[in-house]
């Protein structure tokens, strides 16, 4: 509470003086600075990259601790923060040399420093999330639990829905589909005091959903696990629990699919009913039963069925009348 008041004041002050654009702000960065930053980062890639790990810059260095890292210029450069100098987030004083100073670990600049306004808006949602409510979990849950600041690319730049799904679901599945990572965050089990709660299998939890794997590839967890959202607005950061999560298939599987305002919200303005399909922007990536229909084809088939029914009924009626006529003559 106090913290967020302090933030408000900071935002107002910084905003008022237009100072949020200093090195710590999230204003666009000019090309010359980007070049400089990328050059500076090469010093880090000497060790922090697959090539560096394979061939350390100094003999006798053990870089095996870095082997799980996904850092690479082709991964970092296109990411949201790829224009920046690593040391804008990883303190300039502690990472210029190796071995890095121990203090570096605790001096990483938090998201708030540069994105105060966004954090201010998101924090109440974040605090209402399932993850912020469970003791033992909330202490460890931060913005970068889901957002890898070296890799993530914002939806409107990523564009391809398949890539957006892959990125956003990776954030959730990294934990919910890996017992190892889950155990690092999981609270104590109610029935097993002193022991971590076991990870429920993600496909078993959702066994009411047919072909879960097809769904994980084409929609995001947050499609169902966040509250209703207004058109063109970003989804909430409030992750809903199992009581409140969306279970109705028709939310997506109908002509008025919410996917339009969720996964496809950045594309929906380009909706042109391509080839005559409704929701054809969704069709660019997924055929969604009930949502991606062809009204003309539907009408033709309904018409044919109607005509056929009428045809046999008329034929039958004429047969009955004719038979009555023949009986009358006999």
């Amino acid at each position: 509470m106090l913290a967020s008041w302090r933030q408000t004041i900071v935002v107002l002050l910084l905003g008022g003086w237009g100072l949020s654009a200093f090195a710590g702000g999230d204003a666009p960065i000019d090309t010359a600075t980007i070049e400089l930053n990328r050059k500076a980062n090469e010093a880090c890639y000497a060790c922090h990259s697959a090539a560096g790990i394979a061939k350390p810059p100094k003999a006798g260095l053990d870089l095996s601790k870095l082997k799980d890292s996904r850092l690479e210029p082709p991964v970092f450069n296109p990411s949201d923060h790829g224009v920046m100098d690593c040391r804008e987030c990883h303190s300039k004083t502690h990472y210029n040399d190796y071995p890095h100073a121990e203090a570096g670990k605790t001096s990483t600049v938090g998201c708030t420093e540069c994105h105060a306004a966004k954090v201010l808006r998101l924090e109440p949602q974040f605090n209402a999330s399932v993850h912020a409510k469970v003791k033992g979990v909330k202490e460890k849950f931060t913005c970068f639990t889901c957002h890898d600041p070296h890799i993530n690319i914002v939806q409107k730049r990523l564009k391809d829905p398949a890539k957006i799904v892959a990125q956003d679901n990776h954030g959730c599945l990294e934990c919910h589909n890996s017992s190892e990572t889950f155990a690092k965050f999981a609270p104590e089990g109610e029935k097993t005091p002193g022991q971590k709660k076991a990870r429920p299998d993600i496909d078993t939890i959702h066994d009411w959903l047919p072909n879960t794997r097809a769904h994980w590839k084409s929609v995001r967890c947050i499609e169902c696990h966040t509250p209703e959202v207004a058109e063109a607005k970003m989804l909430s950061h409030e992750i809903l629990n199992k009581e409140k999560a969306e279970k109705k298939c028709l939310t997506c599987h109908s002509a008025n699919s919410t996917l339009k305002v969720r996964l496809y919200r950045h594309m929906v303005k380009d909706e042109q009913q391509k080839y005559g399909f409704t929701n054809s922007v969704i069709l660019s990536n997924s055929y969604v039963i009930g949502a991606t229909r062809h009204p003309l084809l539907d009408n033709i088939l309904i018409g044919l069925a109607g005509l056929t029914l009428l045809g046999v009924l008329a034929h039958g009626a004429v047969r009955i009348i004719a038979a009555m006529g023949r009986k009358g003559k006999e």
């Binding site: 009411w208 047919p210 298939c249 028709l250 599987h253 109908s254 002509a255 039963i289 009930g290 229909r293």
Partner: peptide
């Protein structure tokens, strides 16, 4: 499945599937 719509009295979607 094909004409799924909250306003139409059809078989419930997941049961139908």
């Amino acid at each position: 499945l094909h004409f799924a719509d909250p306003k139409l009295p059809l078989v419930e979607f997941s049961l139908a599937a």
